[in-house]
Amino acid sequence: MNKDLLLEIKDLTVSVKRKKEAVPVVRGVDIDIPRGGIVGLVGESGCGKSMTAKSVNRILPPFAETTGGSILWHDSPGETTDLLKLKEKEIRKKCGTEIAMVFQEPMTSLNPMMRVGDQIREVLKIHKIEKDPAVSKERVVKMLGAVGIPQPELRYNSWPHELSGGMRQRVMIAMAMICSPKLLIADEATTAVDVTIEAQILDLIRDMCHASHMSALVITHNMGVVSAICDHVYVMYLGSIVEKAPVRELFTNPLHPYTRGLLSSIPRIGNNPEYLETIPGNIPVVRKPFSGCDFCMRCSDDVRKCFMESPEMREAGNDHYVRCHTALTGPDPGESKGTE
């Protein structure tokens, strides 16, 4: 289906230098972000979702680098650029103006030595928008108001440590939105705030996306966040996408064992209060090359085939895709390897 896509991540590989070895942490990831759509990227800590996001605006840490694939940016239908091929100067031009990012920890993500208003205004200064300081300040104050900060003219001069966690996150959003970007990447944006604030922040993001036809890539490990604002969701495990579907479809019909595990591990009121569902095992630390399915060690539906062959992404209808041998057909009783 040819939707109007803003961003296409194709076959992206990111490797990390660990003791002179290059270990791939993002392996052949494909993500489509439609114009005006909110896409969720879900997975456990360490699965590579942050690395994927940081490849887009190229703020990977020095020990990581993209080793393959392309990130296609469709400026307007017909005009396409591969972000990975851009030079440093060119990608920096896009950062803050067309692509913006909101981070997890607003206390440490804001410079403690600068007033919050100045930090937001810095975006305008860097990109030489609005030379007149009075006008640019006005714009910042308006933005602060738009994100729901009371008394924005006063708050302009506040220091980060004078604000609460929720306010700081709003400041981060104001900083991201000030140039009306086409894509907002929210990297675990609500992980560090409490539930009520989280709801407000999510509402804010969704409203701003709808109001300005802005796309968003929401990265989280929290399925609840996904269900709150995302249209589409990608599930990531160990550097690969294992399932992707529209949100409603995923929640009503989760196919991949990992997805099912994630959904069932959300504590629900009414369920057994003493026993929490978990997915057995952990993400392995050292990734040795393995020809089978990455998840099979922790999977309860696995068969012998899962050890030998890595599954392909297969369509399950309704724009729902899954990478699993048994998901579409169900486990073969004869082939089950038994209990562990």
């Binding site: 940081k54 605006n57 190229r58 703020i59 440093e88 100067k89 920096r92 031009k93 896009k94 950062c95 803050g96 103006t97 913006a100 990012m101 981070f103 997890q104 920890e105 440490t108 993500s109 804001l110 410079n111 403690p112 030595m113 600068m114 810095e122 975006v123 860097i126 990109h127 981060m172 900083m175």
Partner: peptide
Amino acid sequence: DSPYLDTARAKGLSTKKAILFHGLRN
């Protein structure tokens, strides 16, 4: 290693400028 350097780069500052203007200040 501070996250605000990431923020600065995400705003469009080159790595070197981010270190000088933000990192050094701290």
